[in-house]
Amino acid sequence: MDLRIFTEPQQGASYETLLSVAKATEDLGFDAFFRSDHYLTMGGTGLPGPTDAWLTLAGLARETSRIRLGTLMTAATFRLPGVLAIQVAQVDAMSGGRVELGIGAGWFEAEHTAYGIPFPREKFPRLEEQLAIVTGLWGTPVGERFSYEGDHYRLVDSPALPKPVQERVPVLIGGMGKERTPRLAARYADEFNVPFVSVEDSAAQFGRVREAAEAAGRKPDELVYSNALVACVGRDDAEVARRAAAIGREVDELRANGLAGSPAEVVDKIGRYAEAGSSRIYFQILDLDDLAHLELIAEQVAPQLP
């Protein structure tokens, strides 16, 4: 089971805070540091204010050496696809080939209006075109040109540069859409992620993606299947309650919907997600000042997992 750290900096985090979490992620043996791509808090003041996902990852690329770096999920509404392809390829080079691109359609209208970003009505078709363009640019042989004519984007005679360092940057797609999302994942994804859902719902969605992959002529096991779940782990009930209070959540709700409780409880819950088909867990860490939380997971959860 791969274990990754996933952060939500729009809730309030400076680059320095994110750097401390990323370094702890690396030092404690986790596989990757991922972050959301949002510009507006979803509760609270959000101070000191948002940080840009790809600027953050560019900085972390130069200040870490082992962990994978990526987004859950880059909003397709925030960036033009040609620009996004350049940004991700550059950060991949800056990291020595450690970048992964999680991308979604974008959904939070308020952050768009707050920062003057257009919020299109037809978001999913734009996401599909972005995936075609980004992967098409990266896949175009050096010296050849890339053109694309879609309903939303048009590229003419692009040199399709720069190229990522990796032969293929892993692309992550996720969500609970029952038809279009599995079809898109079957065509473009290296990993399929379901965020904040039950074991049963995860198994059902993984099954839809596997069926879509087969229909598309891919082997279902070519994809990685993963879950993102809020973490609230404690050595005893008092520590669990303290960590739940720090993020404004109820312990019972976290136990039902996340990875909460003692290390043993969390290991058991992860085992059930593994039985549903998951081979990678993203621990959503909401209190970024509590590095002892990461230490506990690394010391008492990770060693008990296969």
Rank of each mutant, 00 (worst) to 15 (best):
S226L: 09
P48N: 02
L3Q: 11
S36W: 12
F192A: 12
A58W: 04
L127A: 08
G217L: 04
R208G: 06
L127S: 15
V199Y: 00
W138F: 12
K269N: 00
E63H: 14
H293E: 11
G70Y: 10
L305C: 09
S14E: 03
E239Y: 05
R208H: 07
N227S: 07
L40D: 06
T7C: 10
A204P: 03
A186I: 00
G82H: 07
L259S: 11
F33G: 10
G217W: 06
F124K: 04
A114W: 13
L131F: 12
V209E: 00
P164C: 06
S14H: 03
A238H: 09
I67M: 01
E214D: 02
V134D: 04
V230F: 12
I285D: 04
P81W: 01
P162L: 05
D37A: 08
A76L: 02
I133P: 00
A292G: 15
L57I: 04
P164L: 06
A32D: 07
S279P: 12
P125R: 07
A292F: 00
A110E: 15
V209Y: 01
W107M: 05
A276W: 00
D92Y: 15
A264G: 07
I117V: 05
L172C: 02
F108Y: 08
A292I: 06
A244N: 04
P263C: 00
D151Q: 14
L57Q: 08
S278Q: 00
S147V: 07
D52H: 15
S198V: 02
Y148A: 06
L3N: 14
F283I: 01
D287C: 03
S198A: 01
R62T: 14
F108N: 06
L294P: 03
L184F: 02
A85Q: 11
T56I: 14
T113N: 10
I103E: 01
L223P: 00
R242Y: 03
F6C: 13
R280K: 06
S198L: 02
A260Q: 04
A32L: 10
R249W: 06
G44P: 15
Y115L: 03
A105Y: 04
Y282N: 11
D289W: 13
E16Q: 12
G207F: 05
L229W: 01
A89L: 06
A212W: 09
M73S: 15
T64N: 13
G217R: 03
G150D: 07
L296R: 05
R208E: 11
G207T: 10
T56Q: 10
G29A: 12
D157G: 14
A212H: 01
E167A: 12
G29P: 11
D190N: 11
W54M: 14
Q90S: 13
D27S: 13
A203W: 07
G174P: 01
L47C: 15
A231I: 02
G258M: 04
N193W: 00
M94K: 09
G139C: 10
I281Q: 09
L223Y: 10
T45L: 08
W54Y: 06
V267R: 08
V301K: 00
A241P: 12
S279C: 03
R235I: 08
L305V: 05
L131N: 00
D37N: 03
Q11W: 15
K23V: 09
L80T: 14
G106P: 03
V134I: 15
R79Y: 15
I67C: 09
